[in-house]
Simulated assay, not measured.
Amino acid sequence: MSLPLVTGVILAGGASSRMGVDKAEVQIRGVRMLDHMRDILKHAGINHINVLGRPSEPGGIPDTEPHTGPAIGLWHYLRIQPENSRHLIVPVDMPNLDTAIINQLIEQRQWAYYNQNPLPLLAIASSETTTDRPLTIRALLQAHNAISLPLPESAKTVFANINTVSDLAKWQ
C-alpha cells in the first residue's frame, strides 16, 4: 500500500534556552540533530521537507513572528499551504521517531497526533487554518478536531525529546 503524499515539516526555530546551545546544531552520533530528523523523514518515504525557522537550510522557511513559539510558526506556515495539502509536523529534538509511528500518522485522513504527545502530528491545510491564532500546539489540534491515536506500549521512548544537556547525555 502506498502512503498518501505528505510534506515533512521540521520545527527548528526555537531558542533552545534549556539546552543552552542551538539544538538543531547539536551532534548526535556525529550528525546534526536537524540532519538526523531529515534522515528519519526520508527513511519514512517523505521526500519534500520544509524546515521552519531555518531560512538558510534547504527547504528552510523563516519564522514570521520570531520568539512566539512553534504553534504560531506552524499556524503561519499552514495558512499559506495549498488547500487539503498534508503535512507531517515533527520537532527537531525527537531523535527516536521511527517509520511505524510516522506512517500511522500519514495514513490518517484528518488532523492526528498520539495520546499525550502533541508532536509529531499530521496537519491538513485548509481555509479553517486562518482562524484564531493558537497559543499552543494543543490548541491548534483542538481547533482542528484532531484525532488522538493510541500510543503502542512499546513505543513510549519514541517521543523522548532532547531539551537539555542532561537529556542529551541520557540519550547518548
Rank of each mutant, 00 (worst) to 15 (best):
L78A: 02
P62S: 09
R133V: 10
E107T: 13
I10S: 08
A146H: 07
M19C: 10
R18C: 08
S148R: 11
V92M: 05
H67N: 15
A160H: 12
V26Q: 05
N47C: 13
P55V: 12
P120K: 04
L11S: 00
N145A: 12
A15L: 08
P118S: 11
S85P: 08
N103E: 13
S126M: 11
I89S: 05
I10Q: 04
H43T: 13
L3Q: 08
P82C: 07
I101C: 08
E65C: 02
L141V: 03
D63T: 02
M1D: 15
L97Y: 01
A123S: 09
D132K: 00
Y77K: 13
L151Y: 04
E25K: 01
L121W: 00
Q108H: 13
S56A: 14
Q104S: 15
G8N: 01
N115F: 11
V165P: 03
E65M: 09
Y113M: 10
V158R: 03
E57M: 09
R18D: 03
I46K: 05
M1K: 01
H43D: 07
I102Q: 04
L97G: 03
Y113P: 04
A146D: 02
Q81D: 01
A12Y: 06
V165E: 09
V21W: 12
P82Q: 09
S127K: 06
L52R: 00
I102K: 03
N84M: 10
I162L: 12
E128P: 09
L122A: 03
L151I: 14
I80R: 07
R18S: 12
H48Q: 15
S16G: 12
N96V: 02
P70A: 14
S17K: 14
I72C: 08
Q142F: 00
A139S: 15
A123C: 12
L74S: 06
P66A: 02
V26G: 03
N50A: 13
Q81M: 11
Q110Y: 06
L11Y: 00
I101Y: 02
L121Y: 04
Q172H: 06
Q142N: 15
D22H: 14
D98T: 14
T64S: 08
I147P: 06
E153V: 11
E57G: 10
W171D: 04
S166H: 13
T131G: 13
A160V: 09
R79G: 05
E128W: 01
T64W: 04
V90G: 02
L122D: 00
L141G: 02
L88A: 14
A44I: 02
H76E: 15
E128G: 10
Q108P: 04
E128L: 10
N50C: 14
W75Q: 00
W75G: 06
T136S: 12
N161S: 13
T136E: 07
L135N: 05
L149Q: 15
